[in-house]
Nucleic acid binder design. Structure first.
Lengths: 345, 345
DNA sequence: TATATTGATGTAAACGATTACTGATTGAAA
DNA sequence: TTTCAATCAGTAATCGTTTACATCAATATA
């Protein structure tokens, strides 16, 4: 592959002129410009980005840490990031770290090695103070998950309010026995949703039954939703509504409920969270909280870019959510008794 | 961030020695090694990979072109690639190009710019001779899709035989009116599956009805499967079995059939392709061809790495597939007549 | 006409690593 | 004791750009 020197020789100019033509900032005489451009074409010259990056002391590259790209929720956020990256001329390394700290750190070390100019974290756990060590020195932005006790810029929704919206809907529709399928992870969103769930019940004068709460192990998977719903609905005095903290859990919960012979929503209302596309594939379509995933990703990207350029960025960006009513939720009709008998184990 | 020079000064050695210690090939006296290591720690030195890459004339980076990460089929292949990349110390840029040639070329140009050492293409169309131009000069491997007329290394399965396996199963189970949901794309897999579909019917002495074939527009989506099944099953003399060239199409087809009042598999057998995890989420679980996605990705990565090291690599790697029988397929029982009446438009 | 100003171009020094080459030291062989 | 090879460390060139600075010609100003 030809270098600038060869281009310069062929065009009979200095390499400085070649560089100037290529970057097109300072003025160069038209005939020289033409000579350089011709030489570039004839030699099929392509700039060596490694050399350029070394000289400019940048990489035009970001790292993105995600727990799991297979999850359509993350996939949509990434789509937003991708579009923004394209717009700003950035590339990115996408890493599936499954939230393993070791791996996370190994990847963030790329910032130190000049392999990346900034980072976006999609699944920062509560209490992850080590992230702060990076964020102090390098442009780091958190997306969807964050810990409010650290001053690291983040983009998310108001998880507490979103859950209150769900609970308001359920309670005002007559449900009094409301269960929730949560996860045993250390995400702020999880703890906020749980807090809102409890607060809503308490404020409505309803008891907070620990038997109505399930903490699924690990990830937001269909299987976990299935199992949790099974165990929730197998109870004598089972809940009439299930609030699931993700759509994949809700889809699993619906399947689990159906498998036990319950109709959704007639016998059990199920509400999800996120609004991934699978919510409208299988009936009943899932009533859920719509998160502006694409925008969350896109905004996060804007923030890193601004940080890279040493601009001031807001720490706490919350985008609007929305409760969308579909088929899996219905007012409580009081027709549950007949089903309690057919519950197996 | 400290450089080698600072480390060298602090350790009172030359930068050559620092480099030698860091790369650990040539021998360095133990006390010097220690001094260098101490200096590295004290200064929190991290090598600048841009500089290293410039000097070594490599990037340790790959580009991966995929039409759509959201599709779980591609996601699994990428998981295989990711693992291999990790093993070999490579990073990769993942690009969703949606098969747009312009974009594809723009990204492959990174090979010329020394931004990547090799490329893996997940969705090369038939007749894409321009890919060959890159493949001649740079390490390029194709994964899942390829064009047999070009000598570019690729990893895939035997799509013709896999489809013959499906058709053998259907025909030997008494189905004679077999439809297929294909796509109007330019993939070799698509044309091979269609060829096998026609051949199987012909060889079994069954007519190839063009009315039983649907070419969905664009992508392998749930929606397309839904619509295509609807139109196939709305016919007077509708097929009793549908072979879908992807699982997402099959899931859509099952939903479409159900929406029309058909039972799957009692009234219509539906068979998919790929074996993504969604096949076993909703009943009926989908009978499908299992592709070793992870291995396909992993093997493709091995091939690029070997090519990068100028080793000889095989051109045509085909991995084994398998037909797995689940709930969505059943022998033809002849009980269809009663349903033809309830078919709407 | 002499001088200051402007603007285009070239020269050469970075950027931070790797590595060919050179030189010094040591120990073994003659 | 001399010679030679082997081992290890240092010097400096190199990778391919960008860019501060120097140069020079042309124009404007006095």
């Amino acid at each position: 592959m030809a270098t600038m020197i060869e281009v310069a020789n062929r065009a009979n100019v200095s390499i400085a002129t070649v560089s100037r033509v290529l970057n097109g900032q300072s003025c160069v005489a038209p005939d020289l410009v033409k000579r350089v451009q011709d030489a570039v074409k004839e030699l099929h010259y392509e700039p060596n980005f490694t050399a350029r990056n070394l000289r400019r002391n940048e990489s035009r590259t970001l790292v993105i840490l995600t727990p799991n790209i297979t999850n359509p929720y993350y996939a949509n956020i990434i789509a937003g990031i991708a579009q923004g990256a394209q717009e700003h001329g950035y590339s990115y390394f996408l890493f599936n770290t499954e939230g393993k700290r070791e791996l996370d750190e190994q990847i963030l070390d790329r910032l130190k090695k000049h392999q990346a100019d900034g980072a976006i974290l999609l699944a920062a756990e509560l209490g992850a103070d080590w992230i702060y060590d990076y964020a102090k020195e390098y442009p780091v932005v958190q997306c969807s998950e964050f810990d409010p006790q650290f001053e690291i810029p983040h983009v998310s929704i108001d998880n507490y309010q979103a859950t209150r919206d769900v609970m308001d809907y359920l309670i005002s529709n007559g449900h009094t026995r409301i269960g929730t399928i949560s996860i045993d992870n250390r995400f702020y969103s999880t703890s906020e949703r749980l807090r809102a769930y409890r607060d809503a019940l308490r404020e409505a004068g309803l008891p907070v039954e620990e038997d109505y709460i399930r903490y699924a192990t690990g990830e937001y998977t269909f299987k976990m939703g299935f199992k949790s719903a099974h165990s929730l609905l197998a109870q004598e005095n089972r809940p009439t509504a299930l609030f699931c903290i993700s759509d994949m859990l809700a889809l699993g919960a619906i399947a689990g409920a159906k498998e036990m012979g319950f109709r959704v929503p007639e016998d059990v209302t199920v509400i999800g969270f996120d609004d991934v596309e699978y919510t409208t594939m299988f009936h009943p379509y899932v009533t859920t909280i719509v998160q502006p995933c694409f925008d969350i990703g896109h905004t996060a990207l804007e923030l890193v870019c601004n940080k890279i350029q040493h601009q001031q960025v807001p720490t706490n960006v919350l985008l609007p959510h929305r409760l969308v009513l579909r088929e899996s939720a219905a007012p409580y009709e009081g027709n549950i008794a007949k089903f309690t008998s057919c519950v197996t184990g």
